[in-house]
Write a protein that binds this DNA or RNA. Structure first.
Lengths: 145, 145
DNA sequence: TATTGTTATACTCTATAACTATA
DNA sequence: TATAGTTATAGAGTATAACAATA
């Protein structure tokens, strides 16, 4: 449990915030599949990890409001990337599952995504990349808190 | 110069992308000054570091298109946070400078920002935070490449 | 002729409020 | 009465295209 009372910590927090905002803007542009928004990609990633989820669960996990998730799920369904089925126990809810097509697309886009990020990462030295690689799962944890 | 051929690297890249997108969405919400968008904040941060810049330079640094920066700078000027002056050598260009008011606001918001991020970071253990702190400047470098 | 910045316009994503159906 | 999801609508932020002024 860090106390964050150091000047270094404040600087780290600033650097983190600034970098996250800029990187997110560039990621939006460099999207691998032109027809998929960053959040749509993120939802597919979540489904790949969690298997299935209800729209409400997805909204909470992605930190968007329920109506936004309704729209995102509808777009993904229209593209054949998810299936919507009735919830077995609660008829108010629905169950979202990714299709085989989504699986294939994720696999394909992983390569493209690496290619783009690699273009940035090769500018780093080995030590910097090692530090970033260690930080990646922690950033993920942070985003989930 | 990493080669990115390991599976671990691909996983790190995925984690990085996903975390950056989610964190950016939450940062947008948790903005400290309600009247300032994330990009406006980022522009002020850039000016604080670089002193002065032309709108074109700012657009390139923030990775937005020139018309977007025109709008952002105009909003910041209307709020009294930047000054726009004619370029001394090239009458097509302008020079953007931050005001004393912007300086004070950045100082103030730094505290608030820490407070919010601290709420997440205290959930990490010391080791995780140490790794994240080391990664922060590298992320910043990445965002600038 | 090329470049800087602006104006006009449209699009994407997300939010809030009001509604429906089920618990 | 509360909860899951949807519909309708609005707003924020950014982009593209066309334009003006200067180099």
């Amino acid at each position: 449990m860090p106390d964050l009372s150091h000047g270094d910590d404040a600087a780290a927090v600033n650097a983190l915030r600034s970098a996250v905002m800029r990187l997110s803007r560039r990621l939006k542009h460099q999207r691998v599949d032109e027809s998929l928004s960053p959040t749509e990609m993120s939802v597919l990633g979540t489904l790949a990890r969690c298997g299935t989820a209800t729209p409400g669960e997805l909204a909470r996990k992605e930190h968007v409001q329920p109506p936004s998730m309704t729209r995102i799920v509808a777009l993904l369904e229209a593209k054949g990337l998810v299936r919507l089925e009735p919830h077995p126990e609660d008829r108010r809810q629905k169950v979202v599952t990714q299709t085989e097509q989504a699986e294939a697309m994720l696999e394909e886009s992983r390569r493209k995504r690496n290619a783009w990020l690699a273009g940035l990462v090769v500018e780093l030295d080995e030590e910097e990349w090692a530090k970033l690689r260690e930080a990646a799962p922690i950033l993920e944890k942070l985003a989930h808190l």
